[in-house]
Design a protein around this nucleic acid. Sequence first.
DNA 1: TGTACATCAGTGAACGCGCGTTCACTGATGTAC
DNA 2: TGTACATCAGTGAACGCGCGTTCACTGATGTAC
Lengths: 209, 209
Amino acid sequence: MNRRETTKQETRKLILNAARRLFHTKGPERCTMRDIALQAGVSPASVVVHFKSKTALLEVALYEDIERNIVRAVATMPQTAPLLDRFMHIAQSMYSFYDSNRELYRVLIRDTAFEPKGENPYLTRQLQEYLRFFGGLIEQEKVLGTIRPEADAQIAAASLFSLYFSVLMEFLRNGNMTVNMALEWLALSANQHLIGILLQGEETNGRCA
Amino acid sequence: MNRRETTKQETRKLILNAARRLFHTKGPERCTMRDIALQAGVSPASVVVHFKSKTALLEVALYEDIERNIVRAVATMPQTAPLLDRFMHIAQSMYSFYDSNRELYRVLIRDTAFEPKGENPYLTRQLQEYLRFFGGLIEQEKVLGTIRPEADAQIAAASLFSLYFSVLMEFLRNGNMTVNMALEWLALSANQHLIGILLQGEETNGRCA
DNA sequence: TGTACATCAGTGAACGCGCGTTCACTGATGTAC
DNA sequence: TGTACATCAGTGAACGCGCGTTCACTGATGTAC
């Protein structure tokens, strides 16, 4: 690593720290790229050199915090509890985390969730890794004999994440919804996902148009 | 209805038609409020009088098309087919519809899905009505004996919609994904949702943190 | 080792664009008497 | 029925703001010889 390269990284850090501070305090919609440059003690043009857009900066500035929280949630997860409890433990941790600044994370997710894949490499990769991890947990449950062996673990992981994400969307756009309300709703749908809704013994021909 | 009131509605229609045309041809990000005003033969200020923001205009301009497609999908739904087939029939219709202009609907959904509830009254109401309708279908299936009577139909409807919506998100942000790929994925997760993933006979205690 | 040149991160100012907002105004329509 | 006034949809122009982009420039750092 060059001297040139190290100073470049230092500038980047300065910008990221200033951005994190301002995003958290003023909110991402009420602070400008110029505010961040000023706060970082750097030229506005320099911010653009490092991050091609405000959204890109937002993603990079926040994804590490999210990552930290995921790691913590996974670390404190009850190892022997049923799958649903472990799933809900992580959901509880994440919802509480987002609850600390709902407006901020609402904007982050809105601005990243619908962009073409290449636009949010950090969050995209983070999600993929988490889905793989959670799929692994489900595979383990097959070995333990609590999950049907024919079930597709990756599909199941993605489905449970879909339920988690839908509730999160509702949570972020509805200020009256508390963390506990979100968790209750999620628990109901996740539980029903695990046990299914078809009457037992019913034939399931997966045919469709 | 006054003469004054009727002319007001005419102006509104002029704006909406111009907006629909431009949104579809140029895309919502490449046409301005002034473009729309010009196309409608109306003053730019007048557009703002009728619609408080570009997003609000986008919502009103497009929701009727969506509504029309939902109605058509429901009308052509095979009445006697299994629940999953009927669900997939509607999904197929909607995905194909969105496929006709992915970029346009990606922007519409991005800009509405994460706004506070009051900001998109039309789409919010549309979704609620559809969820109620689909919940009703599931209730019917209980009567027919294909769905467990203890299952919660509203939760099930919301869950299936979550799966549908997640795949739609992926579909809209990933240009390489075809309608059929989206449908295959959805069929797998929806089917698994119906039958559940727990090993039969497994106790399901819904406890969670 | 020294010199001469190339590279490139960062600068500060300026510009164009789109959106939302404001403003004083017009003129047709509605209403009170 | 007529007159005098009030209401209000629509106008056109202007403004402020934030973002992204461009530009010529500086000066420290790296590199070729």
